[in-house]
Amino acid sequence: MDVFMKGLSKAKEGVVAAAEKTKQGVAEAAGKTKEGVLYVGSKTKEGVVHGVATVAEKTKEQVTNVGGAVVTGVTAVAQKTVEGAGSIAAATGFVKKDQLGKNEEGAPQEGILEDMPVDPDNEAYEMPSEEGYQDYEPEA
Results as ranks from 00 to 15, higher is better:
130 E>S: 10
75 T>G: 14
73 G>I: 10
127 M>C: 02
6 K>Y: 08
81 T>M: 13
94 F>E: 04
140 A>F: 12
48 V>C: 08
137 E>W: 06
49 V>C: 10
121 D>H: 06
18 A>C: 04
55 V>N: 01
100 L>W: 06
15 V>G: 04
88 I>H: 05
109 Q>N: 09
123 E>G: 11
125 Y>E: 13
84 G>F: 06
110 E>C: 10
10 K>D: 02
21 K>D: 01
10 K>S: 04
1 M>C: 00
130 E>I: 08
52 V>R: 01
126 E>I: 05
25 G>D: 03
64 T>W: 14
12 K>Y: 11
78 A>C: 03
8 L>C: 02
16 V>K: 03
88 I>K: 02
1 M>A: 02
41 G>S: 08
44 T>R: 01
91 A>G: 10
29 A>H: 04
60 K>V: 13
13 E>W: 04
97 K>M: 01
16 V>E: 04
67 G>I: 12
117 P>M: 09
36 G>K: 05
95 V>Y: 05
122 N>G: 15
4 F>Q: 00
102 K>M: 06
130 E>T: 07
123 E>K: 08
118 V>T: 15
9 S>R: 14
78 A>M: 14
4 F>I: 03
52 V>N: 00
22 T>S: 15
31 G>D: 00
19 A>T: 03
107 A>P: 07
46 E>P: 03
72 T>K: 08
22 T>F: 02
66 V>T: 03
118 V>Y: 04
136 Y>A: 09
8 L>N: 00
79 Q>K: 05
14 G>F: 11
74 V>F: 14
121 D>M: 04
92 T>Y: 06
87 S>Y: 15
78 A>N: 02
115 D>N: 05
35 E>A: 08
124 A>C: 08
11 A>R: 00
52 V>E: 00
23 K>Y: 09
13 E>V: 07
30 A>P: 02
70 V>N: 01
84 G>E: 08
65 N>L: 15
51 G>L: 14
109 Q>F: 07
113 L>R: 11
127 M>V: 09
31 G>T: 10
96 K>E: 06
129 S>Q: 09
107 A>E: 11
115 D>A: 08
69 A>C: 04
117 P>F: 09
31 G>A: 15
123 E>R: 08
5 M>E: 01
81 T>K: 02
51 G>K: 08
136 Y>Q: 14
76 A>P: 02
121 D>S: 09
82 V>L: 15
34 K>T: 06
29 A>Y: 15
8 L>V: 05
28 E>K: 14
31 G>Q: 06
3 V>C: 07
108 P>H: 07
139 E>T: 03
105 E>C: 09
80 K>M: 08
115 D>I: 04
95 V>H: 11
98 D>K: 10
98 D>T: 07
81 T>G: 08
123 E>M: 09
130 E>K: 07
61 E>K: 11
134 Q>T: 06
82 V>E: 03
30 A>Q: 01
122 N>E: 04
124 A>T: 10
41 G>F: 14
82 V>P: 04
50 H>W: 10
3 V>P: 00
59 T>Y: 01
137 E>S: 06
59 T>P: 01
76 A>Q: 11
41 G>Y: 10
85 A>D: 14
92 T>K: 10
50 H>K: 06
102 K>F: 00
50 H>Q: 01
71 V>W: 14
2 D>A: 03
6 K>R: 06
80 K>L: 09
98 D>L: 15
